[in-house]
């Protein structure tokens, strides 16, 4: 499947600032969902066009040696001080993302999400996950995620926490 590209090139700095503000407001609004998260827990969100999950160890290693600002941006959601702090970091491949969970959104889906008011973002995220427009990867085992306090959040998104042979 060819990678999707955004319809218009983003004005990166402003867009990132807007996105950070939106996600920060979203997490602040639903802080109860993240109250159990251990400090240090981290999630990420990247656009599908910036995702190279399957690049493999060799490519990822090369990228790790040279992560720079030309890498696609990843919205990083860090648990700290009883809440979530939102930031932007370069995404240098899945092996070096340093996250527990990674959401990969089709570019259009991410743009749609970031056009919503903050009270509508998580419900929309849930719908987009179900529709397959947002994919979700885990970098920790079930037990580690439970210990880190993710269960409420994942459940709120309707994600099958224990596997889903359907």
């Amino acid at each position: 499947m060819p990678m999707e590209t955004p319809a218009t090139p983003p004005s990166r700095t402003k867009d990132r600032r807007d996105a950070v503000a939106l996600w920060q407001a979203t997490f602040d609004r639903d802080a109860a969902l993240f109250a159990d998260l251990r400090p240090g827990a981290r999630m990420g969100l990247v656009a599908r066009s910036g995702w190279h999950a399957g690049a493999g160890r060799r490519i990822a290693a090369m990228r790790a040696a040279a992560v720079d600002d030309s890498d696609p941006p990843m919205l990083a959601f860090d648990a700290a001080d009883g809440g979530i702090r939102v930031d932007v970091r370069p995404f240098g491949g899945v092996e070096h993302a340093g996250v527990d969970l990674l959401f990969v959104a089709e570019d259009r889906a991410q743009a749609d999400l970031e056009a919503l008011p903050c009270d509508a973002v998580l419900p929309a995220m849930k719908r987009l996950l179900r529709e397959g427009a947002v994919m979700f990867f885990v970098f920790r085992t079930k037990g580690e995620l439970q210990d880190a306090g993710y269960e409420d959040f994942l459940d709120s998104l309707g994600l099958a926490f224990l596997g889903a042979c359907r």
Partner: peptide, 10 residues
Amino acid sequence: SVVPQTLPHF
């Protein structure tokens, strides 16, 4: 290839 899991069971 290193494609991460989508289910935390694995």
